[in-house]
Amino acid sequence: MHILYNKYLLISLKDFVMFSNDLCIAGRSFKSRLMLGTGKYKSLKDAKESIYLSSTSIVTVAVRRAQKTKLLGSSNLVDGLDWKRLWLLPNTAGCQTAAEAIRVAVLGREMAKKLGQENNNFVKLEVIPDSKYLFPDPLGTLKAAEYLIKKNFDVLPYINADPLLAKQLEDLGCSTIMPLASPIGSGQGLQNLFNLKIIIRNSKIPVIIDAGIATPSDASKVMELGAEAVLVNTAVAQAGSSAQMAIAMKLAIKAGRLAYLADRILAKNTAQASSTNYGIL
Results as ranks from 00 to 15, higher is better:
48 K>Y: 06
188 Q>D: 12
106 V>T: 14
24 C>N: 08
227 A>R: 08
134 L>N: 05
221 K>G: 02
214 A>G: 02
129 P>H: 05
191 Q>V: 14
164 L>P: 00
203 S>T: 08
213 I>Q: 03
16 F>R: 10
244 Q>I: 09
220 S>Y: 00
228 E>A: 15
168 Q>D: 12
30 F>T: 08
235 A>T: 07
5 Y>F: 10
40 K>P: 05
70 K>Y: 02
183 P>V: 09
133 Y>C: 08
193 L>I: 11
1 M>L: 03
162 D>Q: 13
78 V>R: 01
175 S>V: 11
62 A>N: 14
237 A>K: 07
271 A>P: 06
45 K>V: 13
99 A>H: 00
139 L>K: 03
208 I>G: 11
231 L>N: 04
5 Y>S: 10
243 A>H: 10
262 A>H: 06
211 A>Y: 03
233 N>R: 01
106 V>L: 10
81 L>Q: 11
174 C>H: 05
64 R>G: 11
246 A>I: 07
53 L>E: 14
17 V>A: 15
16 F>N: 10
56 T>V: 07
62 A>M: 05
197 K>P: 08
109 R>I: 03
149 I>S: 08
174 C>S: 13
86 L>V: 08
243 A>Y: 02
175 S>C: 12
172 L>F: 13
227 A>K: 06
143 K>W: 07
247 I>K: 10
281 L>T: 08
185 G>A: 03
182 S>L: 02
171 D>E: 09
61 V>E: 15
204 K>I: 06
68 K>F: 10
34 L>C: 02
84 K>Q: 14
230 V>R: 04
280 I>G: 05
46 D>V: 07
160 N>A: 15
157 P>K: 03
56 T>R: 00
6 N>T: 05
158 Y>R: 05
281 L>K: 04
172 L>D: 15
168 Q>E: 15
3 I>A: 11
210 D>T: 15
224 E>I: 14
93 A>H: 00
235 A>N: 00
26 A>G: 08
220 S>F: 00
6 N>L: 04
260 Y>L: 06
85 R>E: 13
207 V>N: 12
179 P>Y: 04
162 D>V: 15
55 S>W: 10
244 Q>A: 12
240 G>L: 14
71 L>N: 12
101 A>V: 00
37 G>C: 13
12 S>Y: 12
160 N>E: 14
65 R>S: 14
187 G>D: 11
280 I>E: 13
77 L>G: 12
50 S>Q: 04
52 Y>T: 09
185 G>Q: 02
112 A>Q: 14
167 K>S: 02
50 S>C: 13
219 A>R: 09
211 A>D: 11
265 I>C: 02
9 L>S: 12
255 A>G: 05
128 I>H: 02
194 F>A: 09
134 L>R: 05
159 I>H: 05
64 R>I: 11
264 R>D: 15
55 S>L: 13
267 A>P: 06
41 Y>H: 00
208 I>M: 08
4 L>G: 01
163 P>N: 04
150 K>P: 06
73 G>D: 14
